[in-house]
Design a protein around this nucleic acid. Structure first.
Lengths: 144, 144
DNA sequence: AGAATAAAAGACATACATGTCTTAAATTGG
DNA sequence: CCAATTTAAGACATGTATGTCTTTTATTCT
C-alpha cells in the first residue's frame, strides 16, 4: 500500500502547482493536468472536492480555472489531505482493529500512534508558501 | 489509504497469533481465521506467501497447520511486511513521483524520507518475541 | 488400504479506486 | 445574441485488492 491515495497525491501536487504560480490567479485544470501528467477528468473531480472544502475557488469560462481560496501561508498540506482522504488516516489502527486506543491497544498501538502523529505534524506544519518558491524557480519539481 | 494492506494486517496478526502460541507448534489456519475473525481462504493465501518466504513452515493432514520456521526472536515484523507487501512501501515517493531521490527530490522528499525510515525501523526493531507474551496472557489483543 | 483432515492451488465473484467519456451549466469576448 | 471556453456532474469502463468457493495434494490415524 501507500500512505496516501493517488487522488491525494494528485491533489497535493496540483495545489502546490497552483501555489507556485502565485496562487491568486486562475489556472485552468487542463494546464495543470498537462504539466503534471495527470488525467484531466480525474483531476477535475479531485479539485472539485478541494473547491467544495473551501481550499480552492473556481471560475468557469474563458480565462477561468482554479485558484487558492485562501492565502498561501494559511493552507497546510494537511488541509489538502483531509479534504480528499478519509480522516481515519491519522487515527486508524495499523493492524486494522476497530477498537484500538490507549485503553484497549493493539500490540503496535503505542509505537504507531507516535509515528502517525509525527506524520500528521509533518503535513500540518508544511504550508504552501514554504514550498512555492523552490517549485516556482525549478529547484523542486512536481512531475517526472 | 492505509499504511499497509489488509493482507499485511492479516499476515501480521496471524504471525503474532502463532508466536503467542509458542510458535513452534502447528496451528491450523482454520483456528487462526476463527479466532482473529479473518476469511479462512483469504488468510490461507496470505500465509502461503509467508511459508514461501521461509517465515512459516506448514504441514498438511490431521494435526497439521502452520508454525514459525525460525525462532521467535529472529523474526521481525518487517520480515512479515516485506514478504507480503510490495517492497516500495519504504522507498516510494509520497507524492507518487517515479524519480524521487536525494539528487532529484520532490518537495516532500527530505521530510518523508525521514518518517518512512522511522517506520521501517519500528517494524524492523519489533521482533515477535517482544509481543508474544503480552498477547499470550491477554494483556494485548489481536482482534476486536 | 481407506477415511478423515488440512494445506495448496486456482477459478470465480465482489468492492472500491482509478481512469475515460459525454453532457450540462456558467462565463467571457466578439 | 452567439460561439468558444472551462468547470460541474454523472455515466461508464478498467484495474486491483479483497473475499468466496471448488478441486487437488499431502498427511495422519484406524
Amino acid at each position: 500500500m501507500s500512505l496516501i491515495s493517488k487522488s491525494c497525491e494528485y491533489g497535493l501536487r496540483a495545489t502546490l502547482y497552483i501555489a507556485a504560480r502565485r496562487g491568486d490567479e486562475y489556472v485552468s485544470i487542463g494546464d495543470i493536468a498537462r504539466d503534471l501528467d495527470i488525467s484531466f477528468h480525474f483531476l477535475t473531480k479531485i479539485l472539485q472536492k478541494l473547491t467544495q472544502h473551501g481550499i480552492l475557488k473556481s471560475s468557469r469560462g474563458p480565462s477561468g480555472g482554479v485558484a487558492l481560496a485562501r492565502p498561501v501561508k494559511s493552507v497546510s498540506l494537511l488541509d489538502v489531505v483531509l479534504a480528499i482522504e478519509d480522516h481515519e488516516l491519522f487515527t486508524a489502527c495499523v493492524l486494522g482493529l476497530k477498537e484500538c486506543s490507549e485503553s484497549t491497544p493493539c500490540p503496535l498501538h503505542a509505537q504507531w500512534a507516535r509515528e502517525r502523529a509525527r506524520i500528521q505534524r509533518m503535513f500540518r506544519g508544511t504550508t504552501l508558501d514554504k514550498l512555492a518558491k523552490p517549485i516556482a524557480d525549478g529547484t523542486l519539481r512536481l512531475a517526472n
